[in-house]
């Protein structure tokens, strides 16, 4: 199994697309840093005559948390896309090129092959997600002027990043499942559409929570159950912006943070979901002709 994981890992790293991804990520981080820098400079003037009233502080904190939210949201988006793109071809690509024949004729089981692929992909994507997460946090807290810095405890960060990586984890498992049965292109389309649906579901849920409509919230909950992606992002922002000092949680409101708070059960649900999906992939691949 580890051999397959190592090969998967090496394959991604050796491809040109990996280099491009790294460069584009650096570009993204540079842009984000620049935006934060200027926002930090300008932002101090918010409020009447620069007077630092309670209201001003609240507004600043709101803006600051939204800026961090934007950075994390796009990080989560990039990670999701990469997770989808790398996993949907993992098996179908090798089947259609017949490369898989020479691996599968070795004394390894189909289950070992699927696990190997999953572990290889998950490790690399989770590593990527963690680096991206901390880069954004560091840029935000470091470059933004004093007023930008949010009160985030190390423990909060660790919790948040653990939830942050659940999304690529689930997406890889899901992409792999589709990849055992569908062509790369079809699997990619299905994954992306579902990802979009989860996003819309999450949006409806937020909106529902805001205007207190249970039906809308339920739609969101159901999408989260079918595809627990967006809820993980929102849970992550909840953990991150749940400031103990601040009675009015920063996460309240805004497009990129969260109104409704997904429960801890939801987090465990997503993890179990991912694992179950890997087992489904194995089952689906076991009897398949290659």
């Amino acid at each position: 199994m580890w051999t397959i994981s190592k090969l998967t890992f090496k394959e991604i790293i050796s491809k040109r697309i990996f280099l491009i991804t790294i460069i584009m990520t650096l570009v993204f981080l540079a842009l984000y840093g620049t935006a934060i820098y200027f926002a930090g400079k300008e932002g101090t003037q918010v409020g009447p005559n620069g007077v630092q009233g309670t209201e001003t502080i609240l507004v600043q904190q709101f803006i600051s948390s939204q800026l961090l939210g934007v950075g994390l949201y796009f990080s989560s988006f990039i990670t999701a896309l990469l997770a989808i793109l790398s996993s949907v071809s993992a098996i179908s690509g090798e089947v259609s090129s017949h490369q898989i024949d020479t691996w599968l004729m070795r004394p390894i089981s189909r289950a070992q092959f699927v696990w190997g692929k999953f572990v290889g992909l998950a490790l690399i994507m989770i590593a990527y997600a963690v680096v991206l997460f901390f880069s954004i946090i560091l840029l935000h807290q470091g470059i933004g002027k004093e007023w930008m810095e949010l009160d985030i405890q190390p423990m909060q960060m660790i919790k948040a990043v653990s939830v942050f990586v659940i999304q690529p984890f689930v997406l890889i498992a899901f992409g792999l499942l589709l990849s055992t049965r569908m062509t790369t292109l079809n699997a990619g389309i299905v994954s992306i559409v579902l990802y979009g649906a989860a996003f819309i579901g999450g949006f409806i849920e937020q909106f529902g929570a805001l205007i207190e409509k249970a039906a809308l919230v339920n739609i969101g909950v159901i999408t989260s159950l079918i595809f627990p992606i967006d809820s993980m992002y929102r849970k992550m922002t909840m953990i991150l912006f749940d400031s103990i000092d601040n009675p009015l949680s920063l996460a309240q409101g805004g497009m990129f943070t969260s109104v409704s708070n997904p429960s801890n059960v939801m987090v465990w649900y997503a993890v179990v979901y991912g694992i179950v999906v890997v087992f489904l992939s194995i089952y689906s691949f076991k009897k398949r002709d290659v």
Partner: peptide, 13 residues
């Protein structure tokens, strides 16, 4: 067992 497939394709990287 050893096997040389008819469509021998190996990871080219």
């Amino acid at each position: 067992v050893g096997y040389l497939p008819e469509l021998f394709r190996y990871p080219d990287w």
